[in-house]
Design a protein around this nucleic acid. Sequence first.
DNA 1: TCGATCCATTAAACCGGTTTAGCGATAATC
DNA 2: GATTATCGCTAAACCGGTTTAATGGATCGA
Lengths: 348, 348
Amino acid sequence: MATIDDVARASGVSKGTVSSVFSKKRPISQEVTARVLAAAKALNYKPNYWARSLANKSTRIIGLNLRADKVKFSQFHLSLLNGVLGACYARGYRLLVNALPSSFQDQVEHMATDPVDGEILLDPETRDPRVAERLSGEVPIVLIGRPSPEYENRVSYVDNDNVAMTQQITRYLLGLGHRHFLFLNAPKFRTVADDRSRGFLSAIREAGLPPSSYHLKYKPDPDNPSFDFGYEMTLATLTERPDITAVIADTDTMALGVYKAAEALGLAIPDKLSVFAFSDDSVFSPEFTPPLTGVRLHAERLGREAAELLLELIDGGARTLKRTIVPTDMVIRSSCAEPILNLGGNKS
Amino acid sequence: MATIDDVARASGVSKGTVSSVFSKKRPISQEVTARVLAAAKALNYKPNYWARSLANKSTRIIGLNLRADKVKFSQFHLSLLNGVLGACYARGYRLLVNALPSSFQDQVEHMATDPVDGEILLDPETRDPRVAERLSGEVPIVLIGRPSPEYENRVSYVDNDNVAMTQQITRYLLGLGHRHFLFLNAPKFRTVADDRSRGFLSAIREAGLPPSSYHLKYKPDPDNPSFDFGYEMTLATLTERPDITAVIADTDTMALGVYKAAEALGLAIPDKLSVFAFSDDSVFSPEFTPPLTGVRLHAERLGREAAELLLELIDGGARTLKRTIVPTDMVIRSSCAEPILNLGGNKS
DNA sequence: TCGATCCATTAAACCGGTTTAGCGATAATC
DNA sequence: GATTATCGCTAAACCGGTTTAATGGATCGA
């Protein structure tokens, strides 16, 4: 590949001039510019991205960090990615998806600074080691999701208000008359699971219901497909506790597992069992039988806001903390209704 | 940030030695290694990724190029991305998602070599300018999907056998007794659309059917949601040509639009209208009413194979051409059946 | 007409690593 | 015991750009 020196030689100017022609950071006469560009074209020259990054101390790349060992890209991530990409695209940034396991990065020969100007961290966990590591460096970060409390005042993040949202949802179900719940939550190590639990429990307490009125389960193994977890856990729990009339599921896929279990148990949705999901696929959710009631998390907007916030931090250089709350919208379809109690009705 | 010089000074060795400690490319005594690592830890030193890349002429990053202006990340891309990420992850590579519009990259001040060791090009189009550009550089590329003929013998690629697959599908529908088809194909500028058309037409000709026996439509606008296109085109075409008994749709989302149109037209699936889709979502497709018959394209495997092929090209340095064909599997559920003809039955 | 100002351009230093050539000390060879 | 390898390390060149300080020429004002 031709270098800047080749072009300088070919067009009879210094390399500094060639640099200025390409970076446009200093004015160069029309005539010289033309000559340099002609020589560059003839040699098929393009500035070397890494040399440029080294000298500029900037790459125009932002990172998206996810723990591939724990999480696979899901529908939610997909929308989120579309939002992030849109923001990058609009501002001329590239996106680096960093899914390397920490076991790899801990090896001495692979240790290195991240090749990005800033990073978005996905799916934060309680006491997430990635956050601690980034805080000691100088690469700005934005989380999507709430950081654990020890970091809450030290990093910027974008999130839904999961506590209030879950509280609202639970109130909605309480208002319909439900008194016994199965809550199939996200994996316990994720902060979002904790927020949802808090919102749920606060609504339960507010209604004066005892702990026996709910079963709160966390998805244990991230590898375990959501569908299977929804199916098996519903089957097992409802067999044991037939007084449960409402299931709150983590995702629409998990909700589908709940639907299957309800079918297996001979429970009609929503008459005998109400189902709610923390997601809303505008194409598929309406096609469930019956159409699934859930909540729109606006994943694409979460992604876009996070990317824009990060780019702002990068440009401003400002070490200001910001947090953006993206609103959620309940989408009520037909999978939740007043429970029709059996004859041997049970009141708590 | 501390540099290699700081560490060299602090541990009383030369920078070359520090470099060797981190790169492990040359043996360094236990004692010195320990001293250097201690100093590095104290200074919170990490080798600079850009400087290293510049000197090494290698980045351990591969690119995934898609035209964000034309295509949004879809379910298919999602699986594909999971495959690519898995392969990267396993071999310690990072993935750069490059969705920049060419209008941006054409500006002089943004012109630069790509910051990657190799690149995967998604959704190739007929006479795709991206391919021509990459061929003049020295970054190896792998396409996912067939390149247009002028490049077919110059680039490596991974693809399904779309011609044979579509031929097989069409034969299947012909075998069921269908004689009038609506084929809702991918956008015309994509090579995959051409392959599918060829496979379809070859089966049609093989059966001795005239051109009047089919309506072949290409999804015009990539921004137009698949669902809407499926719905509107089915409604319009079937109103005009009620003799059509089978619709072949590009994706499951589009198929869902077809389902809606069938409902609006009062056509029962599959008795009055058979629907087939070039996709298979193992979670949602079975949930369609009736469950959707389609074909599994193994997107994840396409992604993984492409990444592995690319990494092989990078490591080997070999300029060998390879092409990998990933097999497809028809998944027959209940959306295709023998057509039950109306009284005023029509034979071609 | 002379000094001040402005301008495009250049030479050299710099970004932070890797790598080559060489050097002294120890170990192996005959 | 002299010769040759081998080992662990260093100094300096190098990767391919950007940037600073300096330069020479044109323009300006008085």
